[in-house]
Design a protein around this nucleic acid. Sequence first.
RNA 1: CGGGAUGUAGCGCAGGUGGUAGCGCACAUGGUUUGGGACCAUGGGGCCGCAGGUUCGAAUCCUGUCAUCCCGACCA
Length: 566
Amino acid sequence: MKYSKMLIPTLREVPAEAEIESHKLMLRAGLMRRLASGVYSFLPLGYRTFRKIENIVREEMDRAGAQELIMSALIPAESYKETGRWEVFGPEMFRLKDRGDRDFCLGPTHEEIFTQTVKSGVKSYKNLPMTLYQIQTKFRDERRPRFGVMRSREFVMKDAYSFDADEQGLDESYNKMYQAYCSIFDRCSLDYTVVDADSGAMGGSGSQEFMVKSDIGEAQIAYCDSCGYAANDEKAQCLEQKVTVTEPALPLEEVETPEARTIEQLCEFFDCGPENFAKTLIYKADENIIAAVVRGDRELNETKLQNYLGCIELEMADDETIYKVTNAKVGFAGPVGLSIRIIADFEVKAMSNFITGANKTGYHIKNVNIDRDTENIEFLDIRNIALGDSCPVCHEKIKLARGIEVGHIFKLGDKYTKALDCLYLDANGKSQTMLMGCYGIGIGRTMASVIEQNYDEKGIIWPMAIAPYQVIIIPINISDQEQAAAADALYEKLLSENIEVLFDDRKERPGVKFNDAELIGIPIRITVGKKTGEGIVEYKLRKSSDMEEINIADVINRVKNDILKS
RNA sequence: CGGGAUGUAGCGCAGGUGGUAGCGCACAUGGUUUGGGACCAUGGGGCCGCAGGUUCGAAUCCUGUCAUCCCGACCA
């Protein structure tokens, strides 16, 4: 392709809308433009990479035996009403009505639609297992779209759904997808980690996320270098600590703490660290009010608590409710003398002579010992794992990192197939419910993650497999007959060898061309300059700082070689 | 949804005691240039987010509204 004919609106300056590197670079390199918050258009250069990622996904899905199809993004409400998700999705679903006032939505995910399709088309165990997928646009009206295409409201996702006769089959289908995902992300040159994820209150026997470690990631992951354990922090298990030091239990003492209600204020007031407190959080779990107690310096893990309680909704209680159950304003709740159900983290059991709220506005209690001072407390793991905690597998120190979720694989079991009566007849002619798995990859997010891991101060450094073009030819002076002719001949030659080449035929100064080539991240750069007469051109890889002069006749082989090697 | 900030040319920004708009880059034309974002000259481009209000007069002051971004909350 001739550069002069292409729409590549590179920007020198960073648009004010972008905060993170991948977002800035995607705008600066002319890969995409914003249309509305969380809605983006891909421009020609960006779309080439986008399609390459799609194709890698497609090839690996096909190789794993999955079949591609495409569903409508416009879906009638009935499809979601049967499983209750028309309500569950709430305002996150883009809803609309047709001229006859019938409810529709733009699909946020397609479990129901695939299940219906399989239900009507598959009747016998002989047709199972079956895995179907699509690469299609999803719509979610996110509360807060952010970081460009990382969290957008309209995004392309590959979503696959497997249907099996039994658990063993589901495991096999799941493992095939796991392998396919590894191949996909390997081919995209992504450095990723697979972590255990929470499978939600609705059951399911397993779920894993493919995470790209990055400071801008929205998920916290815990991992262990010595045994390889890795989990999303919603899932990462905190071990029950052995009680090692036991101070003699001191008598309870009520202390007036008029202006201290946060842990920070209390530390100052009592002149001690946050680990000497236990904080008591009042929650509304469906229709019940409960208290959750964790050490002062810990974070409550709502997912763990919700899974334990088995409730549909879990939210912090409002001030009024807190006053009703604790007899005190917010900030003075404590487990001692509290009459509602109390769930405490394991760690609280190991604490001695700690401080908690007194359930009396303006007062705290010192020297609390949970076993002595309270009863009927349920102890379990309800806190977030923290740096330096023990690995639940090998007991070494846990490390923390942030991650971008680029893929998620999930054993759904019979959640949807049961609700929608997706049945098959087994070998005995008996009706059985199919078991389902679902598997997603965000295409745009994957693209942004690759950039997040592959850039320098000059711009993007595309891995060969997904670069918009493999080679860029830069004639230093296009007005120079000899250079122009040599560059053009080289261009035609590369094209005839089916190499994807961008020919920078613009009448620009060399600096402009070099800077654009580096910004858009083309892996191989061939400069046709003053040694053209001697049959010499310059050859440089984007990812390396070495530049060498090679004979024009050797270029083709060199390029082919570098493409093969990558 | 709570907190914070910003809307002036394609991009980045200035202007602000009220008098109908400016800089850099980009763009167009001509010329000089040609190995790391050239120079000179000329030129095109703006309902100053939108709507009300105050005023003889509003980019500027007031009110409302919309949009965008950041932090948080929430969430397949």
